[in-house]
Nucleic acid binder design. Structure first.
Length: 509
RNA sequence: GGUCCGUUCGUCUAGUCGGCCCAGGACGCUAGGUUUUCAUCCUAGAAAUCAGGGGUUCGAAUCCCCUACGGACUACCA
């Protein structure tokens, strides 16, 4: 490999929110760059003015920031190859189209969209597929069929035109892919793609090649959906005389739907109850809201860890990685070839792992904020104690209130199934008798409380399960939760007794 | 339809140039243990005839060919 500096880019188009497949592409680019001490560039490909979506660019930047994928060059941060928004580079592209025109590697075409549509329909009727190729271009309106003077006249008269690449006939084009090896294409099967649109903007194909060259990109790591147009890009590098410095290509496998087949799409997530976007997104046109991982209670590190394993693995049995560890072990060679089905369950598991190991303040800060909103005053060390105790049963940050609210508020209802299974006959009477004793526990700490309660039950020959479960249901509202004595201690003996009295009154079996 | 890519437990995958793989790990699932509950945790288990069929070879998940299936692309979108 050359000694060329490693420079990679993530080049999304601002046509909507960044989907997790896009985030993964950005991530792999980022890891590769960092691993080799290279640069990671964010370029916005907004050559299609018709598809511009307000807020999409900001969304992309914020998503990457949330993920901890930072770029050291690009939109927002600038750099030596600015500007990084293709709409702002508009003036640069024409000259390269002209070079191509001059060398006979491209030509003018005057066919309107309607005319082409008609031809396409006609071909379809004959069960053929229309392609703008060496074969068909002879029958269409372009500088091949029109003589030079006519062409010039049409150009001068302001006739709308596009510039198309002139694909050579009968040639094998080799794309060397870092993930798939050599891929061969027959040039005759490629069509004369539009390079320059009638609105004065380049298409992706031209802009992408020009920018990658100008920005000295060493590796193009992008989704597999680009593989079919890779030979076109290779041809462009050759025609422009840039073959020597052409970047290496790596086409990533796709992320598939959890069920059935096909590429994961926006719809899948909301239909199946999991996010497909890093951040929540509100469609500026329809107002539709799509859920995001951040709002869904996921930690960015967990999200990244889950994502990196969709199509890549370290070859060891380690599953949990910090970003720095990923940077250290990441290699393109270990990226798989086949598409990966997205598994929401595994995403939850990763998040749970991260909640266990992350700084407790991630949970306690969130709880503190919720308590503040609800005007519930609780000492900070109590909040921390509760989070420490409860974290192992929390998979998503958003579960924190549902899992801890009984520490602050008396249950309003008692879970029917818990009552049915665990509230034994006679519990009401036993609990009533127990009340004075619980009152007497006022000055005990959690440990003493546990001991005394235990001893009392043994001495009075009460049914341990019956008593404990009934108290738990009274205090929590269901048969779940941490150590009972700790709960009593934390919410206080007075409150505990109030809750027990209420439960004894309301629960009848 | 055409072009290209892909195919190991339900899912993510390990399996570097064929033998240590009657295929390993993880998620999920099931069963036990711990816990008076739940969750966690621990242990065990079920789960892939390596898409199918042909070769090559003493020996193939690993190499070759064919078939099937899946996917991407096929716009003056990226």
């Amino acid at each position: 490999m050359s000694t060329k500096a490693i420079r990679v880019r993530f080049a999304p188009s601002p046509t909507g929110p960044l989907h997790i497949g896009g985030v993964r592409t950005a991530l792999y680019n980022y890891l590769f760059a960092k691993k080799h001490g290279g640069d990671f560039i964010l370029r916005i490909e907004d050559t299609d003015q018709g598809r511009f979506v307000p807020g999409a660019e900001e969304y992309i930047i914020e998503s990457l920031r949330w993920c901890g994928i930072d770029f050291n060059e690009g939109v927002g941060v600038g750099g030596t190859h600015a500007p990084y928004r293709q709409s702002e580079r508009k003036e640069m592209y024409r000259q390269y189209a002209d070079i191509l025109l001059e060398k006979g590697c491209a030509y003018y075409a005057f066919d309107t969209a309607e005319e082409l549509d008609a031809v396409r329909k006609q071909f379809e009727a004959e069960k053929k597929t229309f392609q703008y190729t060496a074969e068909t271009r002879k029958q269409l309106k372009n500088s091949f069929t029109l003589d030079a003077d006519t062409t010039k006249a049409m150009l001068i008269s302001g006739q709308a035109y596009v510039i198309r690449i002139c694909i050579p006939e009968n040639e094998t084009i080799l794309v060397n892919d870092l993930i798939r090896g050599e891929v061969h294409f027959q040039s005759s099967l490629l069509d004369d793609k539009v390079l320059f649109k009638s609105d004065g903007m380049p298409t992706y194909h031209l802009a992408n090649v020009v920018d990658d060259h100008l920005m000295e990109i060493s590796h193009v790591i992008r989704g597999e959906e680009w593989l079919p147009s890779a030979p076109l890009h290779v041809l462009l590098y050759r025609f422009l005389g840039w073959e020597e410095t052409m970047p290496h290509f790596a086409h990533l496998p796709l992320i598939l739907k959890p069920e059935g087949n096909g590429k994961l799409s926006k719809r899948d997530g909301d239909r199946m109850g999991f996010p497909v976007f890093p951040l929540q997104w509100t469609d500026p046109f329809t107002g539709d809201i799509s859920s995001g991982y951040r709002e869904g209670g996921y930690l960015p590190d967990a999200f990244i860890n889950m994502l990196v394993f969709l199509g890549w693995n370290p070859g060891t049995e380690q599953e949990l990685f910090t970003m720095q560890e990923l940077i250290d072990v990441f290699t393109i060679e270990r990226i798989g070839k086949s598409g990966a089905k997205f598994d929401p369950e595994k995403a939850r598991w990763f998040n749970h792992q991260y909640i266990q190991h992350a700084d407790l303040s991630i949970l306690s800060d969130r709880l503190t904020e919720i308590l503040k909103e609800k005007h519930i005053e609780v000492p900070n060390d109590t909040v921390i104690k509760i989070c420490e105790m409860m974290k192992e049963r929390i998979h998503l940050l958003t579960e924190i209130w549902d899992k801890t609210n009984f520490f602050f508020l008396a249950p309003e209802t008692f879970d029917a199934k818990s009552v049915k299974d665990k509230w034994k006959t006679g519990a009401n009477d036993v609990l009533k008798e127990l009340l004075p004793f619980i009152h007497s526990l006022a000055n005990s700490n959690a440990e003493e409380l546990k001991e005394k309660l235990h001893d009392y039950i043994m001495e009075h020959q009460l049914n341990m399960g019956l008593v404990m479960n009934a108290i738990r249901i009274s205090l929590v509202g269901s048969s779940s939760g941490p150590d009972l004595a700790t709960i009593i201690h934390l919410i206080g003996v007075e409150e505990s007794c109030r809750r027990i009295e209420k439960a004894v009154q309301e629960i009848t079996t």
